[in-house]
Structures are given as C-alpha cells and as structure tokens.
C-alpha cells in the first residue's frame, strides 16, 4: 500500500499512515477550514487498509488541539478503524491537558475499540 504522509501545518495535523512499517499516527493541530475535505483521503486510505490489514494495528492520536468540525471527522476516522480486527487506539495527551484526556474518553465511549491513554 502507498504511504499516506501529510506534513502538518499551523491548521492541519501531521499524518503518517504506513502499513509496511506499522506506523499510523495523527498528531499536532487540526482546525482546517474544510475538515471533511481534509480527512477524506485519510478515511479512504483506512478503508483500503481494512481490506488487507496487518495482524494487529496500533493507531496513534497525539493531538495538541482540534476544533469541533475536526472532532466530527475524528469520529468518522475512528468508525472506519472500528471495522479492522485487532485495532487499538493509543490516545496521547499532554500531562496537564485534562480536556484532551476527556475528549479521548468521550471518543472511546462512542466506538467499540480499545483505547490506551498515554501522557507526553
């Protein structure tokens, strides 16, 4: 599978989806003008990966900030990941960022995927 690599900007996150090396990560800031447009290739990539997924996948979210329009799309990303066997989410938050921790907990209640919470 092609690697999806989007370099982060001041309003979009850094995204690496690399099946061969087992790296799946969304990090940084997400407040794009058009969140649906921005996340479309990510969700398409995940749907492709679902057909030939690795035996186990750890998907990393290491977000510093996301806006509400992105939160809807993050839920769409998680829903796409839900279809993949042996999927696990690693949800990182800054150790004093309770809001980001709570956001992760809320997402974990909305999808049937195990979440592991980690601080950085």
């Amino acid at each position: 599978m092609e690697i999806l690599n989007l370099k982060g900007t001041e309003d979009t996150p850094n995204i690496i989806l690399d099946k061969k090396n087992g790296i799946f990560e969304i990090s940084g800031r997400s407040l794009p003008e058009d969140s649906a447009e921005f996340y479309r290739p990510v969700i398409e990539w995940i749907n492709g990966y679902a057909k030939e997924a690795n035996p186990a996948t750890e998907f990393v979210f290491k977000l510093e900030y996301f806006n509400t329009a992105s939160s809807k799309l993050i839920l769409d990303v998680l829903s796409a990941l839900e279809e993949i066997k042996s999927m696990k989410i690693l949800w990182y938050f800054h150790d004093d960022d309770e809001d980001m921790e709570e956001a992760g907990q809320e997402f974990s209640e909305l999808v049937e995927i195990p979440f592991e919470f980690k601080t950085y």
Partner: peptide, 22 residues
C-alpha cells in the same frame, strides 16, 4: 455534545453544529 457528534453530518459550510456547545 456526544449526541450531536453521533447524529449530525458536517454541514456544507463545514460546521458540525458543535461550536457553541464546545
């Protein structure tokens, strides 16, 4: 918040209707 995020599609203007709640 959870109710809106689960049940709403992003509007054409890219809003999820969550801004004020947030």
């Amino acid at each position: 918040y959870k109710d809106i995020i689960k049940n709403t599609q992003i509007s054409e203007k890219g809003g999820a209707g969550l801004g004020f709640v947030d």
